[in-house]
Structure formats: C-alpha cells, structure tokens
C-alpha cells in the first residue's frame, strides 16, 4: 500500500471536516477523491501532503509513519488548483526549484528539467514567465515541477478546476496518459464525477467528511452503496419507492407487471436521446415527477405526446 490513512479526524474551529476517515491507496494507482464541495476532499489531500495536521489518526506513506513529518520531508508532489506558480521565476526555474533546493549539480538539473519539459510539451516555453502562459500550460508546468523531485506520491487538488471545459477535457486525457507513462501513485481531488470516472482506476467518494464508498468507477456507478452515492454519480429518478437510473426505465403504452402508471408532461428531444417527463397517476404516489431516458428509436416507436398515459417499469424490476 502506497498510502494508508487511518482514523483521521480534523476540525476547523468547531466545524468537523473529516470524521474518522480511513483510506488505502494502492501503489501505482490513479485514485480520485470525489465528492461535493465542502466534503473534506481537499483537506484529506492536504493531510496526506503534510500541509494540514490531523487532530487524530495516522498517515503512512510507503510503510513509514508520516503523520508528524513536515511536508518537506515527505517527498510528495503537490499540484494546486490555482497553480501556485512562482511568478518571479521562469518556467525552467520553476521546474528546477525542487532540485535546486536539494543542491543537485547544474548538469543534472539541466538534464532532468529538459526531460520534463519534453514530457509536458513545454520545451519552447522554458524561458517564459508563468504570467505569459495559458492556464493549461501553467498547470502542466506545475505538474512537471512536482514530478521533478521524483516524489513517491503525486497529489493534485482540483487540478483542472480553474480551466475552461475544453482545456479540462484535454488535460484529463493527458493526465491519464502521463500516469500510464510515469506510474507514480497519484491521487486527485475533484467534484466532477465525469472526470473521476473518465480518469481514475479507483474512486473514493467523500461527503460531509465521511467516506461513503470506495471502488472502481464501474462498481460505484452500478452498485452504489447508498442513495447519496447513486445520485452523485449519475442521473436518478424515483420510481416505485426507490431510486433508479432514467436509462434503466422501460416505457410501454400497456400496463406491465410492476409498472407505475403516469401521465406524460413533456417529451424533450436531446439529440440522440429523448427525455420523457411524466407525473405518476397511480394512487400510491400520485403527482410525483419522474423521467425516463430512451433512445430516439424507442421514443418514435411509442409515439408519446403530453397527456398520454404511459407505464414505467424500473429495470431490473
């Protein structure tokens, strides 16, 4: 286990931010800490880095107890949401910083920084200042800087949060590919479930300072531990007294066993899929709004219009 976190409790003043959190992170994995804002994810990351001290609990990195170790001694790389670029230093000097501070010989630094600049495709910009770079470039520089000292663990705090959607998607793919090349244990914090599912091998869902579930993206999506995880990870609708995925709802014009009767309120065509919104008319939950997501073909086949009666069956029943 590269990182073992046991029983971490942390409060800021009277507000508890982490409650008895225990997580194990496998060596070489790419793990996402996923959850809503304020859920404690960043705090946990910073506790691992040593930038925050927990009230109780332990942190072990590569088998050694790091709980009381200063961040300088933990050899973890940290990438901040707003880059934390050293704005008075060039890109080259930024990346070289960790090595310079360790007193490495100039030739070694030059070689290593060169490798990293190539790795992150910033070779042309080595002599520029961070202010002259785009957000995406700055974040790549920050990553190169963190990797320069060959950390045992790489921690990223909402690394793409400050970038626009297009750049975010590009960097996501790029991070995945980077990890495949470099194989360093990586943990990143995000509140974007699509991002977590796209990039990570394993996801830790953290909300309200408590670990809700740990697992692979597939596991967490298909077998959510509770309603919160389910609704956080993807779209949900309530049918027959429980939460189901809208794309798991079967529509028909005729009554089916276990089906719920409803009146169509809206049919929205969203490109390749169609959203059918309806209000239940059965006596047990009359008037609740539900919606189903079906393909265009299915929708055309049924030919639904507002006011029609329709029967919804959750799958699996």
């Amino acid at each position: 286990m590269a990182i073992e976190v046991q029983g971490i409790n942390k409060s800021f003043g009277a507000t508890p931010v982490l409650r008895d959190v225990s997580v194990d992170i496998a060596s070489g994995s790419l793990t996402a800490l996923l959850g809503p804002s304020g859920g404690g994810k960043s705090t946990l990351l910073r506790v691992i880095a040593g930038l925050e001290t927990p009230d109780t609990g332990t942190v072990r990195i590569d088998g050694t107890d790091a709980t009381r170790l200063a961040p300088q001694r933990r050899n973890v790389g940290f990438v901040f949401q707003h880059y934390a670029a050293f704005k008075h230093l060039t890109v080259y000097r930024n990346i070289a910083f960790g090595l310079e501070v360790r007193g490495r010989p100039k030739a070694e630094i030059r070689q290593r920084v060169g490798e990293l600049l190539d790795l992150v495709h910033l070779g042309q910009l080595a002599d520029r200042y961070p202010a002259q770079l785009s957000g995406g470039q700055r974040q790549r520089m920050a990553l190169a800087r963190a990797l320069a000292v060959q950390p045992r663990v790489l921690l990223l705090d909402e690394p793409f949060g400050a970038l626009d959607a297009q750049v975010r998607k590009e960097l996501r793919t790029w991070l995945r590919r980077l990890h495949d090349e470099v194989h360093v244990t990586t943990v990143f914090v995000t509140h974007d479930q699509e991002e977590a599912m796209d990039v990570a091998d394993s996801i830790v869902v953290l909300a309200g300072g408590v670990v809700e579930q740990v697992g692979s993206p597939g596991e967490i999506y298909d077998k959510p531990a509770n309603e919160f995880v389910m609704s956080f990870l993807g779209p949900v609708t309530r049918l027959g007294g429980r939460l189901v995925r809208p794309h798991d709802v079967l529509l028909s014009r005729t009554p089916e066993p276990f089906a719920v009767e409803a009146t169509v309120t809206r049919v929205v065509r969203l490109g390749f899929e169609v959203r059918v919104e309806a209000a239940t008319s059965g006596d047990d939950s009359a008037g609740t709004d539900v919606w189903a997501q079906v393909s265009r073909g299915t929708a055309d086949g049924l030919g639904l219009a507002p006011g029609d009666t329709v029967y919804l069956t959750p799958q699996p029943a």
């Binding site: 040593g50 961040p71 940290f78 901040f80 934390a84 050293f86 910083f97 360790r102 963190a146």
Partner: peptide, 22 residues
C-alpha cells in the same frame, strides 16, 4: 499567494529557504 509557499514546502524547501527564494 500562500499556495506558492506551500508549493515550495512540498518541493522540499525549508521556511527559511522559502522566504529567501520565494
């Protein structure tokens, strides 16, 4: 930006070095 200082710490710089260089 306090993050700059913390970035320096995470890269191995002591508070003194961080003050001087950052």
């Amino acid at each position: 930006d306090r993050d700059m200082e913390q970035a320096a710490y995470s890269l191995g710089a002591s508070p003194g070095v961080t003050f001087r260089r950052i």
